[in-house]
Amino acid sequence: MLIMGEVRTGLLQNSAEIEERDHQAVLGLLAGERVRMSRRPIVYAVSPDLLTGVDCRLPSASRARIRGVGTVVSRSSITGGRVLQGSSYVRVTRGEVNYRLPWSHYLARPGVVEVLGKVSGPDVADGFLAFGAPGEHLDLGSVSDRFMDVVQESPVLDLRAPFRSNRTRLRWVAETGEPGVHFTLGEGQERTLKVTHQGEFSPAVVDLCEDLALHDWLLTTLLTIVQRARIGGASRPEVSARLAPAVDTLLHLWMPGARIHPSLAALWESLERTPGFSRQWQSLVERIRDQLAVNTLALLRETNG
């Protein structure tokens, strides 16, 4: 009926990219199972799916009291040995009965939350995308966050990340229909995404949302670093020093659509037209490169002249 999820994205708390062999230790904390890895075009590792049981109110734009029971599916991933994501989603369906069944019933339907009573899909979707006060409703973001916290607690990490950064929060809803995608930048770290796809829902949609969240985080983080560098305001060496972590850490991670199923590629392409992620990224990268080049030249001139 309705599928909704939240992806949180942040910087892995380590001074360097983590080694390929460390991914298992870092992500494996979540469940004893094996971590899935792919190496091309960028190193990407993802934990097995994890389930969290929930029995709580669902968000609702009309503030209706809607009770849902079931399980949330989550996973954590690391891209490029640097960027950590926690991603959770549920399929909201109408339960067959108006009372809570034994847990075995819900465990047999991983990732499904059944509503006890009446429910309107669009009402829940709008309520969810509105980012209400935390703690009142099913909070997929907190679930994602918890799994990220567990990863960040890994003893393999030195907690000396090259710069401070915020976790972004991307909430998405998906439905079947004429293919389309609508992304909005909310207040602070909040973003929303509405995806309409052809045919049945498949986990490839989750991949798309995670990939978008990853690139939105890269862009957001790079923008902050550039703003802080005070180009034109601070001294040249200062500006260069402030831009350096971005160059070392972020620039090579930009690979939009790298893991997207071909059937959804058109959706990424439409996001590239509006809002035009890669265009903005490219112009930022050029600005940084120009700054560093100019600053280096100035420095050379000073030392030689």
């Binding site: 907690l159 401070r164 915020n166 976790r167």
Partner: peptide
């Protein structure tokens, strides 16, 4: 502990 660790990610 979780609060401090989370804030360390974000703040100098």
């Amino acid at each position: 502990v979780r609060l401090f660790a989370g804030l360390h990610e974000q703040f100098d």
